[in-house]
Simulated assay, not measured.
Amino acid sequence: MGSGGKVLGPSGKRARQRRNERILAWVTLVGSGVAGVGGLVDWALGNGLEAQTFWPFAVAAWATALLLKSYGRKRAAGIANGLSVGLFAVGGLWLGIPAALHLVRGESVDWLDFSVGVLVAAVLVAALVAEGLARRRKRRPACSPASS
Rank of each mutant, 00 (worst) to 15 (best):
I79H: 00
K13V: 06
A61G: 07
A44T: 15
A130P: 03
D113H: 10
V123A: 03
G106S: 08
S84P: 05
A134I: 10
E107G: 07
W111L: 15
R16P: 02
S144K: 13
R19T: 12
R16K: 11
E21C: 04
A35V: 06
L112N: 08
M1S: 14
R75C: 08
S144F: 13
V109D: 01
L128V: 14
A44W: 15
G72M: 13
A126R: 04
A134F: 11
V59G: 00
D113T: 05
L95N: 00
D110W: 09
V125E: 01
A80P: 00
V90S: 03
A130Q: 07
A35M: 08
A51D: 07
A126C: 05
S115G: 05
K138A: 15
A60T: 04
R136V: 11
A126H: 05
L124N: 03
V104A: 14
A80D: 01
S84G: 15
N47C: 03
G72W: 13
G2F: 15
S108E: 09
R136P: 05
V7M: 06
N81E: 02
G12S: 05
S11I: 02
G4M: 13
L67T: 02
V118E: 00
V116H: 02
R22Q: 13
R16V: 05
R18Q: 08
G96F: 02
G117Y: 01
A65I: 03
E50C: 05
P145G: 06
V125L: 11
P56D: 00
L29I: 08
W111S: 09
A122Y: 05
L128A: 13
K13W: 10
V125S: 03
G33T: 14
S147A: 14
L95F: 04
A127V: 08
R14Y: 07
V34M: 14
S108C: 03
V37L: 14
Q52I: 12
V120K: 00
A25E: 00
R19K: 11
G91L: 00
A89P: 07
I97W: 04
L128F: 10
G31H: 10
R136T: 14
K6M: 14
G39A: 06
A122R: 02
Y71Q: 12
E107T: 05
S3V: 10
F114V: 09
R140A: 15
I97P: 01
V90C: 07
